[in-house]
Design a protein around this nucleic acid. Sequence first.
DNA 1: TTTTATTGATTGATCAGTCAATCAAAAATA
DNA 2: TATTTTTGATTGACTGATCAATCAATAAAA
Lengths: 204, 204
Amino acid sequence: MPKVGMEPVRRKALVDAAMRVIGDHGSLTVTMSEIAKQAGVSPALAHHYFGSKEQLLIETVRHHLQRLRDSTVTAMRAAKTPREKLSAVIHVSFHADQFAPETIAAWLAFYAEAQRSEETRRFLVIYARRLRSNLLANLKALCPREDAERIAEGAAAMIDGLYIRQSLKSAPISIEASIALTEDYINSLLAPLSGEAAVQRTET
Amino acid sequence: MPKVGMEPVRRKALVDAAMRVIGDHGSLTVTMSEIAKQAGVSPALAHHYFGSKEQLLIETVRHHLQRLRDSTVTAMRAAKTPREKLSAVIHVSFHADQFAPETIAAWLAFYAEAQRSEETRRFLVIYARRLRSNLLANLKALCPREDAERIAEGAAAMIDGLYIRQSLKSAPISIEASIALTEDYINSLLAPLSGEAAVQRTET
DNA sequence: TTTTATTGATTGATCAGTCAATCAAAAATA
DNA sequence: TATTTTTGATTGACTGATCAATCAATAAAA
C-alpha cells in the first residue's frame, strides 16, 4: 500500500475524523485510538503525523475555522448591498452545517478547551473578532460608527448565544427563527438611526 | 477531630472546592485529588461522601444554579415594576460573581459536559428555561404575548452570548457595557410596541 | 538501496475508585 | 462518674483501567 504522498490525505482524514468523534462524543476527552479508528488508520500513525494529541486538536480547530471563513467570504461576495452582506454573515453562521448538533457540540468543546490551550484560544479569538468585524464593516455603511460598534457587538453576542443555547436542545429554536431573531435585532436598532435602511423583514 | 455532623460541612467544602478548581483549570478534567486537596481532605473522603466524581460534579452544578436562582428571586422581589424586574434579571446575570473569569470558565465546562451527562444537561436546561421565563413574565406586562416571547428568546440568547464571548477575554466587554447592550436590545424592540414603556436608558 | 508509510507491541503515567485500618467523639452501661 | 461499646470521620495504600506516546520492525514504492 505505501504509496508516496499519503501525508496530506491522512492529515485531512484525521482532522475530519477528529471533528466527527468530538462532535459525537460531545467532548475533547476522546482518545487518539477512537480518532484513528474513525479515520481508518492506527493510533501510531496519528502520532506520526501530528506529534501529539493536542496538535491534532489544534489543527482540527484551524481547519474548521478556515472552512467557516471561506463560506463567509463566498457568501459576502455574492451579496451586493451592505444590508445584504449583513444578512449573508448571519446566514452563514446559522447554516445547516454549522447548526448540526455534533458541530455545535464540537465548538462548545473547543470553547472549553480554549481556557487551557493558548493556541486554541487564539483561534477562537480570531473567529470572534472576524464575526464582529464582518458585521461592523457593513453596519458602518448604514449608521454612525459608534452605533455600528454597539450593534455589531450585540449581534455577535446574539449569534453566539443562540448557538450555545441550541446545544442544550431543550426548546430547539429553528434555524429560521434564529436568523429572524438576529435580523430583527439589527433592524430594530437600525430603524431609529437611518430612516429607511431597515427593510429586510423576516418572519418567525 | 472526628466530631459528628461533618457531612454537610465537607459536602459544601468539596462542592466549593470543585467550583474553584474547575474554574482555575477551565475544564472538568480535574482530578478528585485536586478537588479534595483544595477542600483540605483526602481524595478518599470525597468518594466517601459523593460516591463518584460525576456525582460530585453534578452536585456542584446544582449548588451553584441554586445560588443563581436565589439571587434572581431576591433581586426581582426588590424591583417594583415589570420593567424594573426585567432590569433586575439582567443585572443578576452579569453580577460580578457570575462574571468572574473562573466562574465563566466553569459554566462553559459544564455546558460542554452537558453534552454527555444527562443530569448536567437537565440542570442547564432548567437554567435556560428559567432565564427565558423570568424575562417572558415581565415582558408580557409590557407588550403582546407573541412579541414578548420573541424578545425573551432574543434577550436570553444575548445574555448567554455576552457571557460566552467574555470567556475568550479577547475584547473584554465590561459588565456595564454588557448590561447596556442587553437593556438597549429590550428597549429598542419594545419601543415601537408600546409608546412609552422604554425608559431605562443606559450608557455604554 | 534508500526512503516513506504503516503498524503491533510496549511503556510509563495518571486516575477513579476500593478497602481495611485508625482515631476520636457519643452513647450506653456499670 | 468512670468505663466500655458503638459509630461516624478519615486516611494511606493499593488496584485496575485507560491512554498518550514511543519504537523497532515490516512492507512497498522510488
